[in-house]
Deep mutational scan, measured.
Amino acid sequence: ETKSLTLVLHRDSGSLGFNIIGGRPSVDNHDGSSSEGIFVSKIVDSGPAAKEGGLQIHDRIIEVNGRDLSRATHDQAVEAFKTAKEPIVVQVLRR
């Protein structure tokens, strides 16, 4: 079962304390579909994302501050987090 969660993150020394993997390839599949998503791959101990109620590894990131990342490329997702103003509201899907 997958549930949708909304989390609020604040940077600590400029970092949110997690890494992402995935992202849509720069070239779409011929039918326009994509199974890619942006997923949390690593969480830094005691970083902002590790706090209670924070992110978990394998969370799929859907949205950052209202910006849809469900079909974003990896670079677009990285840029969305880099430029996001605080508080950073992150919507994820968690299995």
Rank of each mutant, 00 (worst) to 15 (best):
G66H: 05
R71I: 07
T2F: 15
R24C: 14
E1T: 14
D12V: 13
G66K: 04
V64D: 15
G47P: 05
E1C: 11
L5I: 14
V92P: 02
S26K: 12
A84S: 05
H10Q: 15
S35A: 09
E63F: 06
P87T: 02
L9G: 03
L9D: 03
D75V: 10
D12C: 07
I20L: 08
S13T: 13
R71N: 14
R24L: 11
H30F: 14
E1Y: 15
G32I: 12
D45P: 12
N19D: 14
V40F: 03
V8A: 08
S26C: 08
L9Y: 04
V92Y: 01
P25D: 14
R11P: 05
N65M: 01
A50Q: 12
H58I: 02
S15M: 07
T6R: 11
R67Q: 15
E63Q: 12
H58P: 01
D12M: 13
I62D: 00
R24Y: 13
A50R: 09
G22F: 13
L7N: 02
D31H: 13
S46D: 14
A50Y: 07
R71Y: 13
P87F: 00
K85A: 08
V44Q: 14
P87A: 01
V44S: 13
L7I: 15
S13K: 09
R60C: 04
K3R: 07
R24G: 11
D28I: 09
R94P: 02
R94K: 02
K3S: 12
K3Y: 15
G22D: 07
K85P: 09
T73Y: 04
I61G: 01
G17C: 03
T6Y: 05
L69H: 00
R94W: 00
G32K: 14
D68V: 02
S34Y: 11
D59G: 00
K3A: 10
A84N: 01
G37V: 01
V44M: 14
L7D: 01
G37P: 04
S46H: 15
N19Y: 12
L9E: 02
S33M: 08
A72N: 02
T2W: 09
I20T: 05
G14C: 06
V44I: 11
V8T: 15
I43E: 02
V90I: 15
I61P: 00
I57T: 08
G23S: 07
D75F: 09
E86V: 05
Q91F: 01
I57S: 04
S46P: 08
K85F: 04
S46I: 06
I43A: 03
G47K: 06
K85V: 11
R11A: 03
S70N: 05
L55V: 06
G23R: 09
F18V: 03
F18H: 00
R71L: 12
V92A: 03
A50P: 08
D59Y: 00
L16F: 04
A50C: 13
D28G: 14
V89I: 13
R67N: 10
K3N: 14
G66A: 03
E1P: 04
E86A: 06
S70A: 07
E86K: 04
T73R: 05
L55Q: 00
R95L: 06
S34M: 11
S15E: 12
Q91S: 10
L55S: 00
G32V: 12
S35G: 14
R95G: 11
T73N: 08
H58N: 14
P87N: 02
H30I: 10
S13G: 12
T2E: 09
F18D: 03
K85M: 07
R94C: 00
K42I: 03
